[in-house]
Nucleic acid binder design. Structure first.
Lengths: 223, 223
DNA sequence: CTAATTTTCAAACACTCGTTTGAAATATCG
DNA sequence: CGATATTTCAAACGAGTGTTTGAAAATTAG
């Protein structure tokens, strides 16, 4: 069974090209001929290595899932090794530090995969329905429970809501999703500078997490 | 030139069906045959009324633009008539109240158009490049300048950044964009309940706006 | 080196895409 | 009414879609 250097190189080139083009134009607007042409391979290679276009899409996500989760969990592990009860701010900073590191690590695809994730949030593909929760539920659960512990003035349900807002905000922020660029002719903010995004984002979301409860009556008083 | 009841009804049915299907499947994955079938009209009707599929897409946005902007500006106008210097919280509440009203107003398409906007942020279409800023720049400018006035501890640039985060968070929140649903098998939050979204969202983003400046050195001390 | 296996490739497959056509049906107007 | 303009419709257009095929090329194993 072939795992030769040449074969790996071919499937990798396809994955790289596909990842970039899926981000840029979306799944449907990206044709097999465009992908294989960009990768410099024959069009039949996609079906040979990945079975189908759907299979390729799934493979693009599969390749990134494990290193992605490990990177973000690693920062949380390190934090919880240093502090028994990390603050919400520290948890957010761990997440942001992981995002920054991801953006600098070319071997992980940089922020391209974050952009692909951000696209997938509003443009779900049935192929990912099963694999995504399996790959990322631990990551999500760990960050949420860290926040639950650091925000005792909030009910667990409200922490889930805030994590929902926070995750949307942060993924879109690092993906460079720019509402202003669509709404204004000349927006001031440069949404594609990760360092700047991190600097501006942290105080915003930390204050949002620390804010008073919207539904204080639900907080468990016994903990 | 025809503006008969039947003709208007036909083009309206096309717009309604297209709006819904573009939200659900995106521009490329929505075929003309699917749209016209859902609208109960002949396939040639789209080209007859809107020239092309691109023209239809543009028309879907054009129909909503003016009422949408007027609704959100109306709430801000009312606020500024009542208060000379409204707080950031009041500005946010005006925006949220407009979103809630939009969701209840079937004649404005409810929240479907908000979902379409949220999709367009990460999936831009060249056809909208020119028309969107023309339609929404006043709306954006007005809300930003209201926030600039209500947040004197922030530089104008930092207010732009926070509005950038806020707009992303709020549009995606009301659009029901759900990161958790993709990452977890059984998320707790019900992201499609506008009343609940509003209740949980306001304290989060208001605290984020009121937070200390990330770059305090840039604040103009002379104002 | 020979044989078996893996990978590449050009060509063609059936199918769907957005758009156009020209005539039939309907509505408008003098 | 008859004449004119508007709207609907079935059918077809060329182009592009993902996928399959079978043979050629390259690599690996004995």
């Amino acid at each position: 069974m072939g795992e030769s250097a040449k074969a790996v190189e071919t499937s990798t080139r396809i994955l790289d090209a596909a990842e970039l083009l899926f981000v840029e134009h979306g799944f449907d607007a990206t044709s097999m001929r465009l992908i294989t042409q960009a990768a410099g391979v024959n069009i039949a290679a996609v079906n040979y290595y990945f079975g189908s276009k759907d299979g390729l899409f799934k493979a693009v996500f599969e390749r990134r899932a494990e290193p992605f989760a490990r990177l973000f969990l690693g920062h949380l592990d390190q934090l919880e090794r240093q502090y028994a009860n990390p603050s919400a701010k520290q948890v957010v900073e761990a997440f942001v530090a992981a995002a920054i590191e991801l953006g600098q690590e070319a071997s992980l695809g940089g922020l391209i995969f974050v952009r692909l994730l951000a696209r997938t949030f509003v443009e779900p593909h049935p192929v990912l329905k099963e694999s995504m929760p399996r790959r990322y539920s631990e990551l999500t659960r760990r960050y949420i429970s860290a926040l639950v512990k650091s925000l005792p003035h909030l009910s667990e349900a409200e922490v889930h809501w805030r994590f929902h807002f926070l995750a949307n905000a942060m993924f879109n922020a690092f993906a460079g999703t720019n509402v202003l660029r669509l709404f204004m002719a000349h927006p001031i903010v440069n949404a594609r500078d990760p360092q700047m995004v991190a600097r501006m984002l942290v105080p915003f979301v930390v204050a949002g997490l620390d804010a008073q409860a919207a539904m204080p009556e639900l907080v468990d008083q016994n903990s």
